[in-house]
Simulated scan of single mutants.
Amino acid sequence: MFELRRLRLLHELSLRGTLAAVAEALSYSPSTVSQQLTQLEKEAGVPLFAADGRGVRLTDHGELLAAHAARALQLDEQARGELDALRPQSAPVRIAVMQSAAQSLVPPALALLAAREPDLAVYVSQVPPEEGLFELSTRRYDLVVAEQYPGHTREQRPGLTRVSLGRDPIRLAVPRGGRRSHLEQLADRAWVMEPVGTAARQWATQQCRAAGFEPDVRFEIADLTAHVGLIADGVAVGMLPELVRMPTPGAVELHDLPGAPSREIFVAMREFSTRPAILAVRDALRDAFSRRHA
Protein backbone atom coordinates (compact mmCIF):
# COMPACT_ATOMS: atom_id res chain seq x y z
CA MET A 1 0.00 0.00 0.00
CA PHE A 2 1.41 3.39 -0.99
CA GLU A 3 1.54 6.10 1.65
CA LEU A 4 -0.33 9.21 0.54
CA ARG A 5 2.31 11.54 1.97
CA ARG A 6 4.96 9.99 -0.25
CA LEU A 7 2.67 10.10 -3.25
CA ARG A 8 2.26 13.82 -2.65
CA LEU A 9 6.03 14.27 -2.72
CA LEU A 10 6.15 12.48 -6.07
CA HIS A 11 3.32 14.68 -7.36
CA GLU A 12 5.16 17.80 -6.19
CA LEU A 13 8.35 16.62 -7.89
CA SER A 14 6.47 16.12 -11.16
CA LEU A 15 5.27 19.74 -10.94
CA ARG A 16 8.33 21.52 -9.52
CA GLY A 17 11.09 19.56 -11.22
CA THR A 18 13.71 19.43 -8.45
CA LEU A 19 14.04 17.93 -4.98
CA ALA A 20 15.20 21.30 -3.65
CA ALA A 21 12.05 23.03 -4.91
CA VAL A 22 9.85 20.35 -3.34
CA ALA A 23 11.69 20.66 -0.04
CA GLU A 24 11.38 24.45 0.00
CA ALA A 25 7.67 24.41 -0.89
CA LEU A 26 6.77 21.87 1.79
CA SER A 27 9.24 23.07 4.46
CA TYR A 28 11.15 19.80 4.48
CA SER A 29 14.87 19.24 4.27
CA PRO A 30 16.11 17.98 0.89
CA SER A 31 17.44 14.86 2.60
CA THR A 32 13.99 14.09 4.03
CA VAL A 33 12.38 14.43 0.60
CA SER A 34 15.06 12.21 -0.93
CA GLN A 35 14.65 9.55 1.77
CA GLN A 36 10.87 9.45 1.44
CA LEU A 37 11.00 9.19 -2.36
CA THR A 38 13.61 6.45 -2.11
CA GLN A 39 11.26 4.54 0.15
CA LEU A 40 8.42 5.07 -2.33
CA GLU A 41 10.61 3.65 -5.06
CA LYS A 42 11.23 0.54 -2.93
CA GLU A 43 7.51 0.15 -2.37
CA ALA A 44 6.86 0.46 -6.10
CA GLY A 45 9.44 -2.14 -6.95
CA VAL A 46 10.44 -0.35 -10.15
CA PRO A 47 12.83 2.56 -10.84
CA LEU A 48 10.96 5.84 -10.48
CA PHE A 49 13.93 8.21 -10.87
CA ALA A 50 17.00 8.52 -13.07
CA ALA A 51 20.03 10.75 -12.63
CA ASP A 52 19.88 13.95 -14.68
CA GLY A 53 23.00 16.05 -14.20
CA ARG A 54 23.01 17.06 -10.55
CA GLY A 55 19.33 16.32 -10.17
CA VAL A 56 16.85 13.58 -11.00
CA ARG A 57 14.10 13.09 -13.55
CA LEU A 58 11.09 10.81 -13.49
CA THR A 59 11.33 7.56 -15.44
CA ASP A 60 8.34 6.25 -17.41
CA HIS A 61 7.37 4.31 -14.28
CA GLY A 62 7.73 7.51 -12.26
CA GLU A 63 5.52 9.48 -14.64
CA LEU A 64 2.89 6.75 -14.48
CA LEU A 65 2.86 6.65 -10.69
CA ALA A 66 2.84 10.47 -10.54
CA ALA A 67 -0.36 10.48 -12.60
CA HIS A 68 -1.91 7.97 -10.19
CA ALA A 69 -0.66 10.10 -7.29
CA ALA A 70 -2.55 13.11 -8.66
CA ARG A 71 -5.75 11.09 -8.80
CA ALA A 72 -5.19 9.72 -5.29
CA LEU A 73 -4.79 13.27 -3.98
CA GLN A 74 -7.99 14.30 -5.76
CA LEU A 75 -9.90 11.44 -4.13
CA ASP A 76 -8.42 12.35 -0.76
CA GLU A 77 -9.56 15.94 -1.19
CA GLN A 78 -13.03 14.84 -2.26
CA ALA A 79 -13.38 12.54 0.76
CA ARG A 80 -12.22 15.26 3.13
CA GLY A 81 -14.69 17.67 1.59
CA GLU A 82 -17.60 15.31 2.12
CA LEU A 83 -16.52 14.68 5.71
CA ASP A 84 -16.11 18.41 6.27
CA ALA A 85 -19.71 18.95 5.20
CA LEU A 86 -20.83 16.92 8.23
CA ARG A 87 -18.74 18.86 10.76
CA PRO A 88 -20.12 21.88 12.65
CA GLN A 89 -16.93 23.90 12.08
CA SER A 90 -15.02 23.92 8.81
CA ALA A 91 -11.28 23.86 8.31
CA PRO A 92 -9.70 27.16 7.19
CA VAL A 93 -9.79 28.19 3.55
CA ARG A 94 -6.60 29.55 1.97
CA ILE A 95 -6.87 31.87 -1.00
CA ALA A 96 -4.32 33.60 -3.22
CA VAL A 97 -5.26 36.92 -4.80
CA MET A 98 -3.64 39.50 -7.04
CA GLN A 99 -3.11 42.98 -5.60
CA SER A 100 -6.12 44.76 -7.08
CA ALA A 101 -8.44 42.00 -5.83
CA ALA A 102 -6.81 42.09 -2.40
CA GLN A 103 -7.57 45.79 -2.18
CA SER A 104 -11.04 46.04 -3.66
CA LEU A 105 -12.63 42.58 -3.74
CA VAL A 106 -11.45 40.64 -0.71
CA PRO A 107 -12.65 43.09 2.00
CA PRO A 108 -16.32 43.11 0.89
CA ALA A 109 -16.19 39.33 0.32
CA LEU A 110 -14.92 38.80 3.87
CA ALA A 111 -17.68 41.06 5.16
CA LEU A 112 -20.26 38.87 3.42
CA LEU A 113 -18.64 35.74 4.88
CA ALA A 114 -18.66 37.24 8.37
CA ALA A 115 -22.45 37.37 8.13
CA ARG A 116 -22.92 34.05 6.32
CA GLU A 117 -20.21 31.88 7.91
CA PRO A 118 -19.08 33.63 11.11
CA ASP A 119 -16.95 30.69 12.28
CA LEU A 120 -15.07 30.24 9.01
CA ALA A 121 -11.39 31.25 9.00
CA VAL A 122 -10.01 32.55 5.70
CA TYR A 123 -6.28 33.06 5.12
CA VAL A 124 -5.39 35.45 2.30
CA SER A 125 -2.05 35.73 0.49
CA GLN A 126 -1.28 38.38 -2.13
CA VAL A 127 0.64 36.67 -4.94
CA PRO A 128 0.88 37.19 -8.71
CA PRO A 129 -1.70 35.19 -10.71
CA GLU A 130 1.01 33.14 -12.42
CA GLU A 131 2.34 31.93 -9.07
CA GLY A 132 -1.06 31.49 -7.48
CA LEU A 133 -2.40 29.26 -10.25
CA PHE A 134 0.68 27.04 -10.09
CA GLU A 135 0.48 26.73 -6.31
CA LEU A 136 -3.24 25.90 -6.58
CA SER A 137 -2.21 22.75 -8.44
CA THR A 138 0.16 21.87 -5.60
CA ARG A 139 -2.60 22.37 -2.98
CA ARG A 140 -0.94 25.29 -1.23
CA TYR A 141 -4.13 27.30 -1.83
CA ASP A 142 -7.80 26.32 -2.08
CA LEU A 143 -8.85 29.21 -4.32
CA VAL A 144 -7.08 31.71 -6.55
CA VAL A 145 -8.41 35.02 -7.83
CA ALA A 146 -6.73 35.78 -11.15
CA GLU A 147 -7.26 37.62 -14.43
CA GLN A 148 -6.73 37.26 -18.12
CA TYR A 149 -6.40 40.05 -20.62
CA PRO A 150 -8.03 40.24 -24.06
CA GLY A 151 -6.15 37.95 -26.41
CA HIS A 152 -3.93 36.60 -23.60
CA THR A 153 -5.66 33.56 -22.13
CA ARG A 154 -4.20 31.78 -19.13
CA GLU A 155 -2.88 28.24 -19.38
CA GLN A 156 -5.58 25.66 -18.72
CA ARG A 157 -4.01 23.48 -16.02
CA PRO A 158 -5.30 19.90 -15.68
CA GLY A 159 -7.48 19.34 -12.64
CA LEU A 160 -8.46 23.00 -12.21
CA THR A 161 -11.76 24.66 -12.95
CA ARG A 162 -12.71 28.34 -13.22
CA VAL A 163 -15.70 30.50 -12.38
CA SER A 164 -15.81 33.89 -14.08
CA LEU A 165 -16.61 36.80 -11.78
CA GLY A 166 -17.02 39.33 -14.60
CA ARG A 167 -15.22 41.99 -16.60
CA ASP A 168 -12.98 44.72 -15.20
CA PRO A 169 -12.53 47.74 -17.54
CA ILE A 170 -8.98 48.95 -18.27
CA ARG A 171 -8.41 52.63 -18.94
CA LEU A 172 -5.63 54.98 -19.91
CA ALA A 173 -4.33 56.81 -16.82
CA VAL A 174 -2.71 60.25 -17.14
CA PRO A 175 -1.91 63.10 -14.70
CA ARG A 176 -4.83 65.29 -13.76
CA GLY A 177 -5.03 68.42 -15.88
CA GLY A 178 -3.10 66.92 -18.77
CA ARG A 179 -4.25 67.82 -22.24
CA ARG A 180 -3.56 64.46 -23.86
CA SER A 181 -6.26 61.85 -23.49
CA HIS A 182 -5.62 59.52 -26.44
CA LEU A 183 -3.13 56.66 -26.51
CA GLU A 184 -1.39 57.74 -29.71
CA GLN A 185 -0.67 61.14 -28.14
CA LEU A 186 1.55 59.58 -25.46
CA ALA A 187 4.34 58.11 -27.57
CA ASP A 188 6.87 60.56 -26.10
CA ARG A 189 5.90 60.05 -22.45
CA ALA A 190 7.53 57.87 -19.80
CA TRP A 191 5.44 54.82 -18.92
CA VAL A 192 4.92 52.75 -15.80
CA MET A 193 4.04 49.09 -16.37
CA GLU A 194 4.11 45.78 -14.54
CA PRO A 195 7.25 43.59 -14.81
CA VAL A 196 8.25 41.79 -17.99
CA GLY A 197 6.70 38.34 -18.20
CA THR A 198 3.35 39.29 -16.67
CA ALA A 199 0.16 39.15 -18.72
CA ALA A 200 -0.52 42.80 -17.89
CA ARG A 201 2.85 43.90 -19.30
CA GLN A 202 2.44 41.89 -22.50
CA TRP A 203 -1.03 43.26 -23.09
CA ALA A 204 -0.17 46.92 -22.35
CA THR A 205 2.85 46.79 -24.63
CA GLN A 206 0.74 45.43 -27.46
CA GLN A 207 -1.76 48.29 -27.04
CA CYS A 208 1.03 50.83 -27.47
CA ARG A 209 2.42 49.03 -30.51
CA ALA A 210 -1.03 48.91 -32.07
CA ALA A 211 -1.15 52.69 -31.61
CA GLY A 212 2.10 53.01 -33.56
CA PHE A 213 4.86 53.34 -30.96
CA GLU A 214 7.10 51.39 -28.60
CA PRO A 215 6.47 52.50 -25.00
CA ASP A 216 9.36 54.06 -23.07
CA VAL A 217 8.93 51.98 -19.90
CA ARG A 218 11.03 53.74 -17.28
CA PHE A 219 9.19 52.32 -14.27
CA GLU A 220 8.72 48.56 -13.98
CA ILE A 221 6.73 48.01 -10.79
CA ALA A 222 4.35 45.26 -9.66
CA ASP A 223 2.60 47.46 -7.07
CA LEU A 224 -0.31 49.15 -8.85
CA THR A 225 -0.75 51.75 -6.11
CA ALA A 226 2.79 52.88 -6.97
CA HIS A 227 1.59 53.25 -10.57
CA VAL A 228 -1.13 55.59 -9.33
CA GLY A 229 1.40 57.65 -7.38
CA LEU A 230 3.78 58.06 -10.31
CA ILE A 231 0.97 59.03 -12.63
CA ALA A 232 -0.59 61.44 -10.13
CA ASP A 233 2.80 63.15 -9.67
CA GLY A 234 3.08 63.66 -13.42
CA VAL A 235 6.20 61.58 -14.01
CA ALA A 236 4.53 58.73 -15.95
CA VAL A 237 1.43 57.54 -17.73
CA GLY A 238 -0.03 54.04 -17.64
CA MET A 239 -3.04 51.77 -17.95
CA LEU A 240 -5.08 50.89 -14.87
CA PRO A 241 -7.92 48.41 -14.31
CA GLU A 242 -11.00 49.62 -12.49
CA LEU A 243 -10.36 47.37 -9.47
CA VAL A 244 -7.23 49.32 -8.53
CA ARG A 245 -7.87 51.37 -5.41
CA MET A 246 -7.19 55.09 -5.79
CA PRO A 247 -5.62 56.36 -2.52
CA THR A 248 -6.97 59.81 -3.35
CA PRO A 249 -10.14 60.01 -5.45
CA GLY A 250 -9.51 61.93 -8.65
CA ALA A 251 -5.73 61.65 -8.29
CA VAL A 252 -5.43 60.72 -11.96
CA GLU A 253 -7.54 61.14 -15.06
CA LEU A 254 -8.91 57.97 -16.64
CA HIS A 255 -9.77 57.82 -20.34
CA ASP A 256 -11.21 55.06 -22.47
CA LEU A 257 -8.81 53.03 -24.57
CA PRO A 258 -9.60 52.02 -28.17
CA GLY A 259 -12.26 49.32 -28.15
CA ALA A 260 -13.04 49.82 -24.43
CA PRO A 261 -11.01 46.75 -23.34
CA SER A 262 -11.55 44.87 -20.11
CA ARG A 263 -9.88 41.96 -18.37
CA GLU A 264 -11.75 38.91 -17.13
CA ILE A 265 -11.60 38.29 -13.38
CA PHE A 266 -12.06 34.66 -12.38
CA VAL A 267 -11.78 32.32 -9.43
CA ALA A 268 -9.89 29.06 -9.97
CA MET A 269 -10.20 25.97 -7.80
CA ARG A 270 -9.45 22.28 -8.04
CA GLU A 271 -12.15 20.18 -9.69
CA PHE A 272 -12.60 17.95 -6.65
CA SER A 273 -12.76 20.78 -4.11
CA THR A 274 -16.20 19.97 -2.71
CA ARG A 275 -15.74 21.43 0.78
CA PRO A 276 -18.72 23.67 1.56
CA ALA A 277 -16.36 26.24 3.08
CA ILE A 278 -14.44 26.60 -0.19
CA LEU A 279 -17.68 26.98 -2.13
CA ALA A 280 -18.88 29.59 0.38
CA VAL A 281 -15.74 31.68 -0.17
CA ARG A 282 -16.07 31.36 -3.93
CA ASP A 283 -19.70 32.52 -3.77
CA ALA A 284 -18.81 35.46 -1.53
CA LEU A 285 -16.14 36.61 -3.99
CA ARG A 286 -18.63 36.33 -6.84
CA ASP A 287 -21.29 38.28 -4.95
CA ALA A 288 -18.82 40.96 -3.86
CA PHE A 289 -17.73 41.49 -7.45
CA SER A 290 -21.34 41.63 -8.67
CA ARG A 291 -22.29 44.22 -6.06
CA ARG A 292 -19.28 46.36 -6.92
CA HIS A 293 -20.21 46.40 -10.60
CA ALA A 294 -23.98 46.61 -10.11
Results as ranks from 00 to 15, higher is better:
Leu40Gly: 03
Leu240Gln: 14
Leu48Asp: 10
Ala115Val: 12
Thr225Val: 02
Pro247Gly: 02
Val122Trp: 07
Pro195Ile: 11
Pro258Gln: 03
His255Ser: 06
Arg270Trp: 01
Ala50His: 05
Asp76Leu: 01
Ala121Tyr: 01
Ala280Arg: 06
Thr161Lys: 09
Glu12Thr: 00
Phe219Ala: 13
Phe213His: 03
Ala21Gln: 11
Ala260His: 12
Ala101His: 11
Glu130Gln: 14
Ala50Ser: 14
Thr248Ile: 09
Thr138Leu: 15
Trp191Asp: 12
Gly159Pro: 04
Thr32Lys: 01
Val163His: 03
Arg80Gly: 10
Met239Gly: 08
Ala236Lys: 12
Leu58Gln: 00
Leu230Ser: 06
Ala226Thr: 13
Pro108Ile: 13
Asp84Gly: 12
Glu24Lys: 13
Glu155Gln: 08
His61Thr: 05
Val252Ile: 11
Ser262Pro: 01
Glu253Ala: 15
Pro175His: 13
Gln89Ser: 09
Arg286Ile: 06
Glu41Phe: 02
His11Asp: 13
Leu7His: 01
Val163Arg: 15
Leu110His: 09
Ala67Cys: 03
Met239Cys: 12
Pro88Arg: 05
Pro258His: 14
Gly81Tyr: 04
Ala70Asn: 01
Pro276Leu: 04
Gly259Cys: 09
Val196Cys: 03
Gln156Cys: 00
Ala199Arg: 10
Val281Glu: 09
Leu172His: 09
Pro258Cys: 02
Ile221Asn: 06
Ala251Leu: 05
Val124Asn: 05
Leu120Arg: 10
Val252His: 09
Met193Asn: 13
Ala232Glu: 04
Ala72Asn: 00
Leu83Cys: 07
Ala101Lys: 12
Leu13Trp: 14
Gly55Asp: 09
Tyr141Cys: 04
Asp84Leu: 04
Ala210Phe: 07
Ala222Asp: 14
Gln156Thr: 15
Thr205Ile: 11
Asp256Ala: 15
Gln185Cys: 00
Glu77Thr: 03
Arg6Gln: 14
Gly132Pro: 11
Ala190Pro: 07
Gln99Ser: 08
Thr274Ile: 08
Asp76Arg: 05
Pro129Arg: 02
Phe49Thr: 00
Val122Thr: 08
His182Cys: 05
Ser90Gly: 06
Arg245Pro: 01
Ser290Arg: 15
Gly166Arg: 14
Ala51Gly: 09
Glu24Leu: 03
Thr198Gly: 11
Gln126Phe: 05
Met269Phe: 09
Arg218Leu: 15
Glu82Val: 13
Ala21Asp: 15
Gly132Asn: 13
Pro175Glu: 03
Ala91Trp: 14
Ala109Ile: 02
Ala79Ser: 06
Glu77Trp: 06
Met269Glu: 13
Ser290Pro: 02
Ala21Thr: 08
Arg6Trp: 10
Arg245Tyr: 06
Gly250Asn: 11
Gln148Thr: 07
Leu48Ile: 10
Glu264Thr: 15
Tyr28His: 15
Gly159Ile: 07
Asp84Phe: 02
Leu105Glu: 05
Asp84Tyr: 04
Ala114Glu: 12
Val46Gln: 11
Gly45Asn: 06
Ser31Thr: 13
Gln74Leu: 02
Leu257Glu: 14
Glu131Gly: 10
Ala67Met: 00
Gln78Trp: 10
Phe134Thr: 05
Val97Glu: 02
Gln39Glu: 14
Pro118Glu: 03
Val281Cys: 08
Val244Asn: 08
Ala187Leu: 04
Leu279Lys: 06
Pro158Asn: 03
Leu136Cys: 08
Val281Asn: 10
